[in-house]
């Protein structure tokens, strides 16, 4: 028996919007500690890891560990039927073939039940290791989103370089090149507007903007985004989910290909 009651239902809606474009279907794993997901995108290049800790739910009951395979597109369709202020409750029976989403309006005058078919999905849980990163950049999430969007109009690869000067995002394409430099800035009115750069070692890595842009779908979840870079490790792009967890995207850097010689 599983019953999770999330008062701030909009969080779950936003979580789904931030992963459904990247991942088709995935297993949600429920344990006594929390509600989590780990999945690869369809080309097996990027990884998403989601955690919503049990403390963040108003009511959290999970009798035994349960893995529920869901088609994220379908799940998103159902969650879109919930109002932004609605309380969302996820219910499932052990070994059942469906999951139920219940939406309660804040005034309790409307209660909606949506039952969705579950899927059997083969997937291996990958233990993602902790690591020390050479550089960690924390910045406003909408700024990061804007940068990725702007650069992808010019090129398809972004080079992220962190130096003591700041962090540079650059790209090159048929029409020209673009460079965007952000400097550390902690003297701001609102802490979420700060740009914090922790640099142990300078790094410079290339990433496919296609993936970066799908990561930024999580922007509504959090005002800030944390980008952790090491020259030998996949980049981690992390958005906090309120006080209850996180969504992390992992992407391996691109190796600089030799430039195509145009005919």
């Amino acid at each position: 028996m599983l019953e999770l009651r999330l008062v701030q239902g909009s969080l779950l809606k936003k979580v789904l919007e931030s992963i459904k474009d990247l991942v088709n279907d995935a297993n949600f794993d429920c344990s006594s500690t929390g509600f989590s997901l780990q999945a690869m995108d369809s080309s097996h290049v990027a990884l998403v890891s989601l955690l919503l800790r049990s403390e963040g739910f108003e009511h959290y009951r999970c009798d035994r560990n349960l893995s529920m395979g869901m088609n994220l597109g379908n799940m998103s369709k159902m969650l879109r039927c919930a109002g932004n202020d609605d309380i969302i409750t996820i219910k499932a029976d052990d070994g059942g073939d469906t999951v139920t989403f219940m939406f309660e309006s804040p005034t309790q005058d409307k209660i909606a039940d949506f039952e969705m078919k579950l899927m059997d999905i083969d997937s291996e849980h990958l233990g993602i290791p902790d690591a020390e990163y050479h550089s960690i950049v924390r910045m406003p999430s909408n700024e990061f989103s804007r940068i990725c969007k702007d650069l992808s109009t010019i090129g398809d690869t972004v080079v992220i370089s962190v130096t003591k000067e700041g962090v540079k995002f650059s790209t090159a394409g048929d029409i020209g090149t673009a460079n965007i430099v952000l400097r550390q800035n902690t003297t701001v009115d609102k802490p979420e507007d700060a740009i914090v750069i922790e640099m142990n070692e300078p790094v410079s890595l290339s990433f496919a903007l296609r993936y970066m842009n799908s990561f930024t779908k999580a922007t509504p979840l959090s005002d800030t985004v944390t980008i952790s870079l090491s020259s030998e490790l996949p980049v981690v792009v992390e958005y906090k989910v309120a006080e209850m967890g996180y969504i992390r995207y992992y992407l391996a850097p691109k190796i600089e290909e030799e430039k195509d010689t145009k005919p």
Binding site: V159, E165, S204, L205, L233
Partner: peptide
């Protein structure tokens, strides 16, 4: 982006992972 960049650093490091 006019600000000066350390040349040696902005060179892309050879990374070990490939898509």
């Amino acid at each position: 982006s006019q600000s000066s960049q350390d040349e040696s650093i902005s060179e892309p490091n050879v990374s070990c992972k490939e898509d």
